[in-house]
Amino acid sequence: MMRMGKLAWALWFGYAFLYVPIALLILYSFNESRLVTVWGGFSTKWYTELLQNDQLLGAAWLSLQVAAMSATASVVLGTVAGLALARFGRFRGRTLFGGMITAPLVMPEVITGLSLLLLFVALEQAIGWPDGRGMTTITIAHTTFTMAYVAVIIQSRLVSLDESLEEAAMDLGARPAKVFFVITLPIIAPAIVSGWLLAFTLSLDDVVVASFVSGPGSTTLPMVIFSSVKFGISPQINALATLMMVVVATGIFIASLVMARQERQKKRDEQMAVQGG
């Protein structure tokens, strides 16, 4: 009993460590005083100022576009990659493929950023594409490092999944493509949704890779935050951070509600099927 008590303390200490900084950040976004850590009364003026900051809003718009495009591309590529790793058995070049999928998970960002930039420069010299650097190159770079996360999520979902459903469909004469779209895809849909959300957040969060592969005129939101944070803290950034966290929390909340509902629906269907049979 004694040990469980200590463990609970460790757990609560860990949660405090994780959440107190975020709570303080949100609290001080409503601070009247410009000195972020001195309380000067409640105010929402930083939010108003934020909404008039055109540079920041432009960067946010660019980041959202890049994040949506790269998350979509990386879900397509990552799902295929995860499927190949989980279902195709041993194929030629599988070891290299598996290596290229997991390595981006731990690769330091400075290396990824530098290597992609040098590739884009070399490609531009050789074939004239990409013409300069900007939204396209950032999107490609983000797709490359986020698809690894999607592939791992899809692979682990497929590995824990019973193959018999897919085999049954095959036995009944369904083509592989049909099996994928009718059987596999609906089952792994929740994993795909969380993969998309993860890729979206990772893209929206990246400052290092984007700094390497962006060109003049394409500054993403994290790059703006990074350069302003380097000069010290400002209540506007607190307000922005609070807004971003509210958006993320809402997104996750809705996604988990939808998934819980699907799970319940599935259970009900299964029970119906058992009773019916």
Partner: peptide, 21 residues
Amino acid sequence: MLVILPFWTSFLIRIYAWIGI
């Protein structure tokens, strides 16, 4: 979920939070 949740919020902003602390 409580452990993973901070991971979903911006890395940059979590570092920024510590500057004020």
